[in-house]
Amino acid sequence: MMTIRLCAIGDRLGLFTDLAENGPATSQVMADRTGLNERYLREWIYGMSLAGYLSFDKQSREVSMPEAHIPALVDVGGPLYQGGLFKMFTGFMQPYEDLIESFEKGGGIDYEAYPDDFWKGLEHNSCVRYKNLLVSQWLPEMPDVQAKLENGGTFADFGCGAGRSSIELAKAYPKAKFYGFDLFPKNIENARKTAEEEGVSDRVEFQVHDIAKGVPGQFDVVATFDLIHDMADPKGGLKALRQACKDDGIYVLMDVDCTDDPADNEGPLAVFKLGASLHFCMTSSLGQGGMGLGTVGFPESKVKEFSSEAGFSSVRRLPIEHPLNALYEIRP
């Protein structure tokens, strides 16, 4: 826990980037370079070095960034970058008293209780997956989706966040038209800005929209990425997605990979999933009076059950390997 917090500080203040770009430094040199307090930097350096993230020379008192650690700590958007995770941890730990109250009284935590860093962390994590996996590795497993986009079809991402999925796809499939819908105006504002910067605003449209209030049209491909398990009404959400999906369309569902029995989840990410559920996924759903599926509440069996109830006829789990997510191709 403390290591992640120290990493979050290094990420937020640009300390990792300073060491990678400007080379080894004592705490005083780092203070001169960054304008930060030397005493605080000195303590941070000791902590990060003892954790093994940085190298420390006891003779020169200089700290340095191991070249092998740069992809994880500095290369924003790269396949190994972990800065988003550091932000997320720091962010969803903040409404601690609200979580304790929920244990005592029920209910849950409102989205507004989470700081900007949490949402930035989510966006950074999504960016890593979409930039490095979605187009190059996941789409080739869905040739019919590829064909629809290559032929100028329409694609809608519900719960699009900052819009990274639609933007990356728009760069790869210039003939298609992409739409991103999200409940939060700030997400849509950021998505529109990024689309402009990436040069795809002519074929990507972002709108503030709540899927719980219906759908804005029908599309060749609809998608949700890490959305359904968070929803207050996941069954209602899937029924809305069926309405949004054309009869010959395809629904692309990405959600957390988990087991039927929560107690059977194992591996290094099992505790993370349950902790994330308590601190955000489950509690935010319960805070809206919802089902509270939680991070490990939507295994493949429930995907098939809920999809069938919503009017979809087939569910195919794709043969991808990812430490956190499972991917499905679902058809009406």
Rank of each mutant, 00 (worst) to 15 (best):
M88E: 02
P95M: 13
P71Y: 01
Y96V: 10
E97W: 10
F103K: 11
G77H: 06
Q94H: 15
E97S: 13
E104G: 03
G77C: 06
G78P: 08
Y96F: 15
L85I: 12
F89K: 01
K87D: 08
G78M: 04
E97T: 11
M93E: 10
Q94I: 14
G77N: 09
G78A: 14
G106K: 09
G106D: 09
D75G: 00
F92K: 02
L99T: 02
P79C: 06
P95G: 12
D75T: 15
Y96Q: 12
Y81I: 06
A72L: 08
E101N: 14
L73C: 05
G83H: 03
Q82C: 14
G107Q: 07
L99H: 12
S102R: 06
G91C: 02
G83I: 02
K87F: 10
K87G: 00
L73T: 01
P71A: 02
A72Y: 04
G106S: 14
Y81Q: 04
G107I: 09
L85T: 09
G84L: 01
F86H: 03
G91R: 00
G84V: 04
Y96T: 09
G91P: 04
D98E: 15
L80H: 15
G83Q: 05
G107R: 10
G77P: 09
F89H: 07
E101K: 12
T90P: 00
G106M: 12
